[in-house]
């Protein structure tokens, strides 16, 4: 099983319009993801997580990350479990039926290995949207009088430290001094309260798409989750993809496209790049691997062995896929009409 049809050099020759942006997973992470960065990842629980790039963050032992997330289950759990993350702003650390609460996430929080601050899915999506629109905050009524409003996961001292460090580096604080603000609706007087949520502008957003044109245009098939808000809010956007497709093809039906190439900094062709999560029209999630993951993630020694076998061991995604095996990949290959794999044994 070969995940790359052509080498990176050949690809650059094949696709001259995006040759400066075409990178391997290792190159993209080395170039754009630094220890201490604030990052966001695309997908949702068991669907379209940019796993090949996440594995590469782990392989390069990048640490102290500040992960800003809604429900990025599988990717979040691998990053947290591998010790890459220090701070998490999150709505949901679960993975559907495969993990009511993600196992490595739960252990890390209970052991105090990561600091967590909670929001809701809508709140996090609104915060990315505010970042994308270059406004400093966004109002909502979701969460009034709850502990999402009353309790801050990060202490006042930590907030001050983070904000001061960013200001000293000449940038707007990525973690504001307040989690959020409850105020009265300025149009409706005192009768009605709203929550103001601070915008998010992550250093890097990493998403996985089905198609990227050889002009850089991005097409995501199926649910987009909050990928587009996350991408448009970020300083740097890395898009991994199943296929590079011709400009003529992707521009024929541009209604289906979701990001123009000029918003994308790195393009990483990596087939099966979301495994073991699903990628609509290409493959389903891999229930066997997610069950194996669950069993490993419950136990510290088994987890260390999992990381060795599946992440540190394989030097790249091709080697990872070889370990997954062609028979497994064939079993989860999606029906080209339905987009998933009907009748797949998901027990």
């Amino acid at each position: 099983m070969t995940s790359q049809n052509v080498s990176a050099d050949d690809a650059a020759d094949l696709y001259p319009e995006i040759r400066d942006k075409l990178l391997t997973p290792a190159e993209a992470i080395r170039r754009y993801v630094r220890s201490g960065a604030q990052i966001s990842i695309g997908g949702f629980t068991i669907n379209r997580n940019p796993m090949a790039l996440i594995y590469e963050i782990v392989r390069q032992r990048i640490g102290d990350l500040h992960l800003v997330a809604h429900s990025n289950g599988q990717g979040l759990d691998v990053l947290v479990g591998a010790g890459c993350v220090r701070l998490i702003e999150v709505a949901y650390g679960g993975n559907g039926r495969f993990a009511p609460t993600c196992f490595r996430f739960r252990k890390a929080v209970e052991r105090g290995e990561v600091l967590v601050e909670d929001y809701s899915n809508y709140q996090m999506t609104l915060r990315f949207l505010a970042g994308a629109l270059s406004v400093p905050f966004v109002p909502t009524r979701s969460g009034l009088s709850t502990d999402l409003v009353h309790r801050s996961g990060f202490s006042a001292e930590l907030r001050e430290e983070l904000a001061t460090a960013d200001e000293a580096a000449g940038r707007r604080p990525r973690t504001p001094r307040k989690k959020l603000v409850v105020t009265s609706d300025p149009f409706d007087g005192e009768s009605s309260e709203v929550i103001l949520l601070p915008a998010l502008t992550p250093d890097v957003t990493i998403i996985h798409a089905q198609h990227v044109g050889d002009d850089g245009t991005v097409r995501i098939k199926g649910l987009t989750f909050a990928d587009l808000e996350q991408a448009k809010a970020a300083e740097t956007v890395i898009v991994s993809c199943e296929e590079i497709v011709p400009r003529d093809w992707i521009r024929t039906d541009s209604d289906q496209n979701c990001l123009p190439g000029f918003l994308v900094d790195a393009i990483v062709p990596v087939p099966w790049g979301a495994h073991p999560t699903a990628c609509h029209y290409f493959y389903d999630y891999d229930p066997g691997h997610l069950n194996l993951y669950r069993a490993a993630a419950k136990d510290d020694d088994a987890w260390a062995a999992y990381l060795d076998e599946w992440v540190y061991g394989p030097p790249d995604h091709d080697a990872y896929l070889a370990r997954v095996g062609g028979d497994t990949l064939a079993r989860i290959r999606a029906d080209s009409v339905l987009g998933y794999t009907p009748g797949l044994d998901r027990r």
């Binding site: 709505a91 609460t101 739960r106």
Partner: peptide
């Protein structure tokens, strides 16, 4: 530690 809100707070609010 449990999963957290996800969309629950939003659905309960809205």
């Amino acid at each position: 530690r449990f999963s957290g809100s996800g969309g629950a707070c939003d659905a309960g609010s809205l």
